[in-house]
């Protein structure tokens, strides 16, 4: 049995990439990774279980139609029967295309390893994190798109051969006009620690204390929907049922009431800390640790305590 893993261009050290290699390795068979662009650093994937990394160096940028062709041709040349993606923005476009191209069933948003005792089933998040479903795949080739932060990467000390692989994917139909990448910030869906705030912060000028706590922790920042709607914070920070769904190890929510639509995007978090001045705020019911208090007072205190802890450890 062979498993093929798609890795985003130049993402050899990204945690999400190491997660999918570890996941593939745990399926049991040989693991081959496929990517495009530069091959520098591709051998790092070997430590996590890939025995081979196929790199299409003829491509530097690729659209999802081209990536689909690249992955399909790698499936053909390796004879892989399972294909794994990290469920990110690229995979959300490529995996469905590949499903149609290969006539292979797709499990989108998997959160665990598949069960193969009786058929092939896998657990996924549904109803915006309010439930799980077990989905079976009937086709010979299976595609799994794994939600980030579902498995811990494991360095098993292996090594990988890096091979160039030209899939002849043709020209792109999509012309990239410009790209904006904020420097240094942690992409929200991949973040292990998240500090989030809501309307209780009263105005965008008060976000300094949210950012200070995030910086002290090494966390990403998020917000509730109304805060993004009024323009206090950028749209990509909006978490919830109609925003980004996240599953960090720690979610700290300050001045957020905990409406059901907000919870839908964060209820997969391992630990939730709620800071709210209203002891009746519904969010406390979903929290592991609660602080009834004024965020303007609690946030700076928590930042200080984190800094003290970081200095001591």
């Amino acid at each position: 049995m062979k498993t093929l893993v798609f890795i985003n261009s130049n993402h050899f050290a990204a945690k999400a990439s190491l997660e999918v290699i570890t996941y593939a390795k745990k399926l049991g068979g040989e693991v081959v990774a496929v990517t495009y662009g530069s091959q520098e650093g591709a051998d790092q994937l070997g430590a996590y279980g890939a025995s081979k990394v196929l790199v299409d160096n003829s491509l530097t940028v690729a659209d999802e139609q081209q990536i689909t062709k690249l992955v399909a041709s790698a499936v053909e040349s390796t004879g892989a029967t399972t294909v794994i993606f990290s469920h990110d923005l690229v995979a959300k476009a490529v995996a469905p295309r590949l499903s149609v191209k290969l006539k292979a069933g797709l499990i989108s948003g998997a959160i665990a390893l598949p069960e193969t005792g009786n058929g092939f089933t896998c657990k996924v998040n549904v109803f915006s994190g309010k439930a799980f479903a077990t989905v079976s795949v009937k086709t010979d080739i299976k595609i799994i798109s794994l939600l980030p932060n579902s498995i811990q990467p494991e360095n098993i000390g292996g090594s990988a051969v890096v091979e160039s692989f030209n899939a002849n994917v043709g020209a792109s139909a999509i012309k990239v006009v410009s790209t904006k990448k904020p420097e240094g910030s942690i992409p929200l869906p991949e973040a292990e620690l998240v500090v989030s705030a809501g309307r209780g912060l009263k105005g965008p000028e008060n976000w300094g204390m949210v950012e200070e706590l995030a910086t002290a922790l090494g966390a990403a920042t998020a917000c509730s929907r109304p805060v993004a709607d009024i323009g206090w914070r950028p749209h990509h920070e909006h978490v919830g049922q109609t925003g980004v769904a996240i599953r960090p190890n720690l979610y700290i929510a300050a001045g957020i009431s905990g409406a059901i639509q907000h919870l839908a995007g964060v209820n997969g978090s391992k630990v939730i800390v709620v800071i709210n001045s209203d002891p009746e705020a519904p969010f406390f019911k979903a929290a592991d640790y609660g602080v009834v208090g004024d965020a303007f007072d609690v946030l700076p205190k928590l930042t200080e305590a984190i800094k003290k802890f970081k200095n001591a450890n």
Binding site: S99, K103, A104, G105, L106, I107, T121, V126, K130, A131, F132, A133, T134, V135, S136, V137, K138, T139, N267, V273, V274, F284, K285, A286, A287, D288, Y289, G290, V291, V292, G293, D294, D297, V298, K301, L302, E304, A305, I306, K308, F309
Partner: peptide
């Protein structure tokens, strides 16, 4: 048909929230 939703499951109920004194953030950390 390529896939089928076989069964559904609700998440485990959360245990009660531990309340922390707002003046003592060291204990939360």
């Amino acid at each position: 048909l390529f896939t089928q939703y076989e069964t559904y499951q609700l998440p485990d109920a959360k245990k009660a929230c531990t309340m922390i004194d707002p003046a003592n953030m060291e204990s939360l950390v």
